[in-house]
Design a protein around this nucleic acid. Sequence first.
DNA 1: ATAGGGTTAG
Length: 650
Amino acid sequence: MIPAISLSTNITVTTNITVTSTPKAHKHKRPLNSTLKSLTKAGKLDEALRVIESPPSKSVASEPDLEAYSLFLHSCISRKSLEHGQRLYLHLLLSRDKGNYDLLKNPTIKTKFITLFSVCGLIDEALGVFEDGLEHELVPESVWVAMAIGFSKNGYSKEALLIYCGMLSRLVRPGNFAFSMALKACADLCELRVGKAVHAQIIKCNEEPDQVVNNSLLRLYTECGCFDEVLRVFEEMPQQNVVSWNSLIAGFVHRKQVFESLDTFRRMQGEGIGFSWVTLTTVLPICSQLTALNSGKEIHAQIVKSTRKPDVPVLNSLVDMYAKCGATDYSRRVFDGMQSKDLTSWNTMLTGYAVNGCLQKAMEIFNELVESGIRPDAVTFIALLSGCSHAGLTGEGQRLFNEMKKNYGLSPSVEHYACLVDMLGRAGRIKEALEVVKFMPMKPIGSVWGSLLNSCRLHGNVSLGEAIAEQLFELEPNNPGNYVLLSNIYANAGMWDNVKIVRDMMERRGMTKEAGCSWVQIKNRIHTFVAGGGFEFRNSAEYKKVWSQLMDAMEEIGYVPNTGVVLHDVNEETKSIWLCGHSERLATVFSLIHSSAGVPIRITKNLRVCVDCHTWMKIVSSATGRVIVLRDTNRFHHFRGGACSCKDYW
DNA sequence: ATAGGGTTAG
């Protein structure tokens, strides 16, 4: 059975097949072939071509044989040497026109040309080779598969599947190569239905799928979120290798089961599977997400200990992990040590500096990037612009925004406009920000209105905030953050009735504000604190001791809680008690108790830091002499000696 | 000839 696939195509596959007789082996004489082969093996493709293209003399055969050409093409493919391949192709076409035996009909040669053109990105040329004679010949599986892989590798997964279907419709039986290719295409498209049909074919063909096919199944089900299937295939396959385990970890990451994925990584070491660079590039982002610096460092140690040379992606994710843990110095060390860098390496380092508020250094990296001759891309500018926005460098940001198109030929996307709007709004230039929204060439997305609303909150603009919120509620009715922002605006203005109206609206629409939650890694454990929770900890003697010491220090400095951040209409005393229960404070006290002096405290929060906690943190950093690195939903705050890296602008 | 990965965004 052929699975029903509804995909649009411009490829027509005809089904009337005429079988031509098998070509007779091409006669050849040794000398020419051995010359050609040795030239090819020595990498002297130019000379080899000269031999091929030279007019036939009587002393040698008119054409070299299949084997010699195969070898030559193989060499072209591994070097991605399009030019040599094209010249051979032209030569064979001319030779065919002269009435010589048509070597382009030979499946091996055909497969190699298809592969060569595909790896060089010339998918149309590859298709031309493939379709040449398709109607009259019985094309073996290998040719179909080469064409399909060509499509798939160039990002044309639908077309790859259509080739697969074309093959089935001609009753060519798919083998393991065809199966894994088809499954990859389905995984790339998230085409679960077709993928399951292929799975069914694999089962029905009654031959044991090989490991690659099983791994492709794992990836399909991982991508499509069918975790039960992932587990089943994983358990049932005769042997799991590194790739299988990597898929399993990726499956957990996909489901945001960070602890399970770390656990699987450990189990894989326990079972003697080891790891590959891909394993580490899958696991490192978990450490980034969790700000689990200790775990990240352990992985770094594995890389250092290894005798293999780490590849670019694994080092990129290492740079990112350190940056996401607020440790840009470590990032920089890894970055500087990289022997080769790609644009992602630069973007990652740049972004790391930008989100940590080190705009100066981000600009230095940017300049170095430009000097090294690499062209920055859209991501580079999002990092720079959002960095400028958060650092309050409006002029610099505007300059970059304009340079983007003028000097680098990049037209700003809606995300870039969002950054521009954000930086103007934050600086209190809300009117100009609105002008940008009005004249930008595309429809604003939620985040554009969102940053405007945030600007209204920062600058206490109630009426404009209301108007913007209205737009936003229409665009993103189910984003609780927008409602919270509006109620913040009302609360700051003391308009408690309106706060209540917004709260009721949220409740009616079934939305809840995410509970504030902070966590910190101490040794290998992640300790989580929820706002208003942690009672057991707060009742402990050690907590009370540290807390009262902090209170004394606060009093000395003259700290008065800013209860304005409590968005409920309750009395002042209750408000200040609630503030003490904010999750970042619990995490801070916990860290003060459980980590040694001199080590920076690294806390991560799922929401934005509140203004009062921000003040509180500054004081704690000066009273205890500790560096506190707080990562909130979008920024880093480095508290040191009573000041914050964000200069109170965020 | 087939399977696995990293960066931005209120």
